[in-house]
């Protein structure tokens, strides 16, 4: 039985200079990608959904602003785009920071951290200082930190940016698994190919507004690509095939 987590929704969200009346209803158990050109407001929307930017965002029936910070932190895990560790912790100590919102026993924390490291194939990195890790390893450890908190929602800002093709695919596979198990996954992604091939739901932002929202084939239709990015795209294969040539 898959647990049903509360939905996350923004209703007519406006952030001066960034977002203009953005609404988004996100379902748990799905993988959503937020796409758009630079400056479209992707990060602002993600921060608002994470409760870091004040706005009309609700988790289930509760406004995020009314939720105690610790409860919110247990429900929503957030991974910023730039999250360099100020101190040279070991990967394991860094992942353990994800347990800070929980008041659980040391054993429960250990189990959650080890599971998170193992899920992202980082167990062998556990005792390495993070400043000695490669970009791809750091990105995986950073995501493991979020997983260790066992949140209902994972909100990540360009987690694939520093990964090569194989690593990005492995990470997406893992996020897909989590979504299938009931976690809500929301990613800001630059790669439309990733969005096309892996997302259940795509939100296209353009100049602070929602230009399109829906399944990838619909949200990334040719006229949207032209209107938002100014590029001509063409579908490959029969309708419904997940392939896009730009």
């Amino acid at each position: 039985m898959i647990p049903q987590h509360p939905a996350l929704a923004a209703e007519n969200l406006t952030v001066p200079g960034r977002l203009l009346g953005v609404s988004a209803a996100l379902q748990p158990g799905t993988l959503t990608m937020i796409c758009g050109p630079n400056g479209a407001g992707k990060t602002t929307l993600l921060r608002a959904l994470a409760g870091l930017q004040p706005g009309p965002v609700t988790l289930g029936d509760t406004p995020l602003s009314a939720l105690p910070p610790r409860r919110r932190a247990q429900a929503i895990g957030y991974l910023p785009q730039h999250g360099e560790a100020a101190w040279n912790l070991t990967a394991e100590a860094l992942v353990r920071l994800g347990r800070l919102p929980h008041r659980t026993s040391r054993a429960a924390d250990d189990a959650a951290c080890h599971a998170a490291l193992a899920a992202l194939d980082c167990t062998h990195l556990a005792l390495r200082p993070v400043h000695t890790l490669s970009g791809g390893e750091r990105a995986r450890v950073a995501l493991a930190r979020v997983l260790a908190g066992q949140p209902h929602w994972i909100l990540a800002d360009e987690p694939l940016a520093s990964l090569d093709l194989a690593q990005a695919r492995a990470l997406l596979r893992h996020l897909r698994q989590l979504a299938d198990q009931g976690t809500g996954v929301v990613l800001v992604a630059h790669s439309l190919a990733h969005a096309m091939n892996h997302a259940d739901h795509v939100i296209v932002l353009h100049q602070g507004r929602v230009a399109a929202s829906g399944p990838p084939q619909q949200a990334l239709a040719a006229h949207i690509l032209d209107e938002v990015w100014g590029v001509t795209g063409q579908w490959l294969g029969p309708p419904g095939a997940r392939a896009l040539s730009l």
Partner: peptide
């Protein structure tokens, strides 16, 4: 350690 945004997101 991971920045102000992360600290806030951790509650």
């Amino acid at each position: 350690t991971l920045g102000e945004d992360t600290a806030r997101s951790l509650g």
